[in-house]
Amino acid sequence: MITLEGVRKTYRSGSVEFEALRGVDAAIEQGEYVAVIGPSGSGKSTLMNILGCLDNPTAGRYLLAGEDVSSMSETQLAEVRNRRIGFVFQQFHLLASQSAWRNVELPLVYAGVPRADRRARAIAALTRVGLADRVDNRPGELSGGQQQRVAVARALVTEPALILADEPTGNLDSRSTADVLALLDELHAAGRTIVLITHEHDVAARAERNLVVRDGEIVSDEPVAGVSA
């Protein structure tokens, strides 16, 4: 599913350079649940941006399902982001003026799916995350955990092969955190490939493997204790 070969990312500001990633090599198979863990400034968010085709490496290669992402046009990259990758962020990024189902249908709007189909698929996705009774509620009428479930439903509505979750529990209380992590467990059990970015070790422990990032490098790639591959 994912192959990284010598991936580097350098940011420049005038004469100053900062190397956020320093030759990252990694492979994630289809259907795996992998957590990328590290402290703030370690490079994990930069890595997530590259995995999500939101940024390009300065050097090295990123292969997604065998395709070299660097060879894709902006139009092709946009299609990959919309159809093949589902994003879940720490900030929910929901439109406050729109209902839950309207927020969930947005990727389908960009994909040109007919209106009737969009509504049906959005409601089905919300039902899947346990919000069948909240489809017409706006974000301000939902709890933080419910808003994150809406965000997960939006990530799922295009049936992507890969779910990228960037600190998805960072703004949630302990009960909502447990609910969202249980939902990610269910998606993994159903065959989704999940990459979870986090700085919390107890959250990372839910994955099958942990990639530990420090100073722009992967310093450890190990299975989680007690989780069978």
Rank of each mutant, 00 (worst) to 15 (best):
D136V: 13
V34S: 10
S176N: 11
V150T: 08
A125S: 10
D221W: 00
N103Y: 03
V129F: 07
A111K: 09
V109G: 03
S143F: 10
N49I: 11
G144Q: 11
T3Q: 15
G38V: 10
L126N: 04
V80M: 13
P139Q: 07
S40A: 12
E208R: 14
H199Y: 00
E19N: 09
G41S: 01
P168W: 00
E5C: 01
E200L: 04
T198F: 00
Q147I: 05
A204G: 07
Y11W: 14
V195T: 05
A178T: 11
D179M: 14
Q147V: 12
L63D: 01
L126T: 04
E159K: 11
A190K: 05
S99G: 04
I28M: 04
A124S: 12
D68K: 09
R83V: 05
L156F: 04
H201D: 14
R22T: 00
S40K: 06
L184D: 02
S13Q: 15
P223L: 03
P168K: 03
A161L: 13
L4A: 03
L196G: 00
A111M: 08
Y33D: 06
G41I: 11
Q76V: 02
L183S: 02
R138F: 05
E29L: 09
L162R: 02
V69D: 08
D136E: 14
S228N: 13
Q147S: 08
F87V: 03
S228E: 15
P223K: 10
A27E: 13
R115T: 12
E19C: 03
I37P: 02
Q30A: 14
V203L: 11
E67W: 11
V213H: 01
K9S: 00
E67R: 15
V80Q: 09
Q91A: 13
R81C: 01
V69Y: 07
R8S: 14
S15L: 14
V157K: 01
E32C: 01
R8D: 14
G170R: 06
Q98W: 12
P139E: 09
E186P: 07
T169R: 06
D215V: 10
A122D: 04
A111C: 10
A125T: 03
I50G: 06
L164G: 06
G31P: 13
N137P: 09
A151E: 07
R154Y: 06
V212Y: 08
E167V: 00
V88K: 02
Q147H: 12
R83L: 10
T177V: 11
S45T: 15
L131A: 10
A151F: 01
D136M: 11
R61P: 13
N56W: 12
D179C: 11
A182S: 13
I2S: 01
H188F: 02
E17N: 13
A20I: 09
E208M: 15
N103G: 07
P107A: 06
T58Y: 06
E186T: 14
T75M: 12
T198I: 03
T10G: 03
V36I: 15
L126D: 04
Q147Y: 04
V7L: 10
P168T: 08
A182Y: 02
G144W: 06
T10Y: 11
D179A: 15
E222V: 11
S174F: 14
V88I: 12
L183Q: 06
